[in-house]
Amino acid sequence: MMTPESHAQPRHLARPVRVLVAKPGLDGHDRGAKVVAAALRDAGMEVVYTGLHQTPEMIARAAVQEDVDVVGLSILSGAHMTLFPRVRDLLNEAGRPDMLLTGGGIIPEDDMATLHARGVGQLFGPGTPTSALIEYIESWAADNLTD
């Protein structure tokens, strides 16, 4: 669902950053995803939340259809090494290697490094303040997005 009003877009953009927050796999823990979605919305981004139990295919399709800039996955199930690369590949195959794939959850630091080498952006562990990911997305948008 989209928020009707968005403000605070990065200074050089005439539009807000568009973000898809997604819960891949069978993991039902959505407290974090919902907090993140609400925080990004409150920071002026346009946020779409997929709901639970999405396959990588469903997520990539939604990202392309909604024409988002950023896809954020929340994974607390330990399946991150399967799901992040799968979504990255599907986005690339759909002609959207430009989309930032980021996310968070219970992900050990060395796995974060491995995933980064597979084309995944910064990942955020438990206890990260929402301001850290807002800053990250805004700075990525400033460097990568044009109108």
């Binding site: 069978l26 993991d27 039902g28 139990h53 396959t55 199930s77 330990g78 399946a79 090494m81 399967t82």
Partner: peptide, 22 residues
């Protein structure tokens, strides 16, 4: 694990990557 919690067998496509994890 999550597949079992959702009623999927370990070899079901939706179980990919989650078998035995949680």
């Amino acid at each position: 694990d999550f597949p079992t919690l959702m009623g999927y067998d370990s070899d079901h496509p939706r179980s990919l990557g989650e078998v035995g994890k949680c």
